[in-house]
Design a protein around this nucleic acid. Structure first.
Lengths: 193, 193
DNA sequence: GTTTTTAACCTAAGGGATGTAGGTTGGTGG
DNA sequence: CCACCAACCTACATCCCTTAGGTTAAAAAC
């Protein structure tokens, strides 16, 4: 009986693929085990429990997103970087729907402090820095941008928007313009206020 | 054996309570049945399956949110209405965390077309109308506002923001100001563009 | 009030998932 | 080659979901 050579990393990426194919909710220890042709109990040599498996998928997805975002904003600033950043997010959600959904989970401490999470965070800060904001405002602006983009993608996927494709693209565009305007007019408050 | 007098509505609101107490993921047909002192199989006289149960919780939550938002924007416009709208959302997420989480599900067609969903949508449109936007822009602005607020609440809950309470409140405030600015500067495009 | 009907409940059953404990064995190192 | 170890398996207990058919409380009909 040759061994399947499971590793946590292989589990996470395979689970992400399964999520893309069948939906994030369908990712179970059993489904992943079937994918590798082993018994479900075998996975517990590599991950503590299902929660840890899904956490790992989340970190995997963060890594992929960070890669795309990094490319999307490379060499750009201001409005162009914003468009690159936003497109990277949107395309990831479209091309990796199941993996993207993993990002919506409540993050474990391990994930929240992971290099992958910190990379995405740093890239968002870099984006808003390109608008020349006061440094004390970076974190607020970054959260705003991240929230708006992710919120839009989340709500469009969840069916909260009654939409046609063209109209949705217009709403996306209008949102990017709104974000751009608000970033360009961000007040120069310093840390004293 | 007296009957428990189950109805779909009672199931949905009880499930929402359980979600608040134990987390949305813990809401199962079995848990709800235990709450009412009946066997799990009995629930299927009232809901088609677990999915339908969770859908109902979502509509229940939409109803509650709509009620709060309605009060939050009553008699207000512009920035004041925005603050009322945002506060209603934030307080709902804080006071009904489990029910709020039900809102993040992918909506069924029944839910997306429900009176509750349409009310929340109409209230959001009323909010942006108060900024004097061109009518063709209502839907885009409404989506932007809804996405930003929900995205922020979602990410703060999910641990995506490394935060302290004071800083988080400042980010929230900064976001409201950013939203206000972007709405006040929304371009007056008409439908031809 | 009594009887009949109906749908709300129950039991039984089958299938699936999760995770622990202990056993077996493939692969590595000496 | 042998010893060791961790990766795998089996067995098991517990829990969940849902269907089919049976029982019965409550509503409707007389």
């Amino acid at each position: 009986m040759a061994r399947a050579n499971l590793t946590p990393e292989r589990l996470f990426s395979a689970a992400a693929e399964l999520a893309d194919l069948h939906g994030f909710d369908s990712v179970t220890a059993s489904a992943v085990a079937r994918h590798f042709g082993v018994q479900p109990a075998s996975l517990y040599s590599h991950v503590r429990d299902r929660e840890a498996l899904l956490d790992g998928v989340q970190r995997f997805a963060l890594g992929e997103l960070g890669e795309r975002v990094s490319h999307g904003i490379a060499g750009r600033s201001g409005s162009e970087a914003l468009h690159g950043f936003a497109s990277a997010n949107r395309e990831y959600a479209q091309e990796r729907p199941g993996a993207w959904q993993a990002l919506q989970r409540t993050a474990s401490t391990e994930t929240a402090t992971s290099p992958q999470a910190q990379r995405v965070s740093a890239l968002t800060i870099a984006l808003v820095r390109g608008y020349g904001l006061h440094e004390s405002q970076y974190v607020h602006a970054a959260r705003f941008v991240g929230a708006a983009l992710n919120g839009f993608l989340s709500q469009s996927r969840a069916g909260a928007f009654d939409h046609q494709e063209t109209e949705l693209a217009q709403s996306w565009q209008a949102m990017l313009e709104a974000l751009d305007r608000s970033l360009r007019s961000w007040p120069a408050k310093d840390a004293e206020q």
